[in-house]
């Protein structure tokens, strides 16, 4: 039996003047999922989070989150959710402990439970020893970790993370990603994660949706999405040119042929054989050194979707 939907949207739409930031979004997110919401900048990811938190009213359609209608019961949704939004939202003049104490008080966590919870969250993130320092003195990576701790403070059923690793250097991003994965698993929380970092999505998410200009393009498990796309062949060598690409494009089973950094990258239909295509390249004067064939990454799926859709 599948888990009940924690988020359900039906034709969810939000316009700003003539711009449709979210356009007829239909989603069903089961409880216990780490759901990745992927899209380029300006795709409508942040607006969707704001709609789901009941901070913005939809102009069309509807959404229920945790069983509450976003229009009527935004307060109940926010009561049971945690959020790390576009900005970390920390009070930089205050210490880490004060920041967490404030939000613990907001969620009515008092006394010893508050102190124990703060310690339980800060220690594994390596922030406990520095809890008395004003947050303004911290690095961006540390602030993001603290913001994650704040979002999990009240043990929410649902956690919204809006590009949590954006703006971090690769090391800090990888560290946060690892810690986020561990924390989310430990807390058993459903996560709605927006990102345009596809490695992050592939590492953390059990289901992903791809959105562009407010419209949903694809949704499913990352492996399902990869399997639904063409096979990818990458041919390394020398002497490749546009004429070869034109020949390749004319062959049955070749969905796409491109030159990328001196390599030929082919997208092939399931039935297509690679060997005759390699032969064609050799006959045309190309020198083939290596052929790699795989199903492609989530990034390939994402880029293909972005190119296909107007």
């Amino acid at each position: 039996m599948s888990a009940p939907a924690i988020i359900r949207t039906e034709g969810l739409t939000r316009t700003f003047g003539s711009v449709r930031a979210v356009d007829g979004l239909d989603l069903e997110i089961p409880s216990g999922t780490v759901f990745g919401f992927l899209g380029p900048n300006g795709a409508g990811k942040t607006t969707t989070i704001r709609l789901l938190l009941g901070l913005l009213e939809p102009t069309g359609g509807r959404a229920t989150v945790l069983g509450f209608d976003t229009r009527a019961d935004g307060g109940s949704i926010r009561e049971q959710s945690g959020a790390l939004l576009e900005h970390h939202g920390l009070y930089e003049r205050l210490s880490a402990e004060d920041n967490l104490t404030f939000y613990a008080r907001v969620w009515r966590i008092g006394g010893e439970a508050r102190a124990a919870r703060i310690r339980a969250l800060l220690q594994p993130l390596g922030l406990w020893e520095r809890r008395g320092e004003p947050v303004g003195r911290w690095s961006r990576g540390m602030k993001q970790k603290l913001a994650v701790a704040r979002a999990l403070l009240h043990k929410p059923s649902l956690l919204f993370l809006d590009e949590p690793t954006a703006g971090l250097d690769p090391v800090a991003a990888a560290t946060l990603r690892d810690e986020l994965g561990t924390l989310v698993q430990r807390e058993g929380v459903t996560v709605f994660l927006t990102t345009h970092n596809l490695v992050e999505a592939e590492r953390l998410c059990s289901r992903v949706a791809v959105i562009k200009q407010g419209r949903l393009l694809a949704v499913g498990h990352p492996d399902e999405l990869k399997a639904s796309r063409a096979t990818r062949a990458e041919i390394t060598g020398r002497g490749f040119n546009e004429a070869m690409l034109a020949l390749l494009r004319g062959r049955p089973g070749v969905v796409r042929a491109q030159l990328q950094n001196g390599r030929i990258v082919l997208e092939l239909a399931e039935s297509a054989e690679t060997a005759p295509l390699v032969g064609l390249i050799v006959q045309s004067g190309g020198l083939v050194e290596e052929v790699r064939k795989d199903k492609g990454s989530l990034e390939d799926v994402f880029l293909t979707l972005m190119e296909e859709e107007p």
Binding site: L53, L55, G75, R78, E79, S81, A83, L85, E86, H87, H88, G89, L90, Y91, E92, Y103, V106, W107, F160
Partner: peptide, 13 residues
């Protein structure tokens, strides 16, 4: 200081 939206996303009335 970009702290308002987080405050508004909390349970506070």
């Amino acid at each position: 200081r970009h702290t308002l939206e987080t405050l508004l996303a909390s349970r506070l009335p």
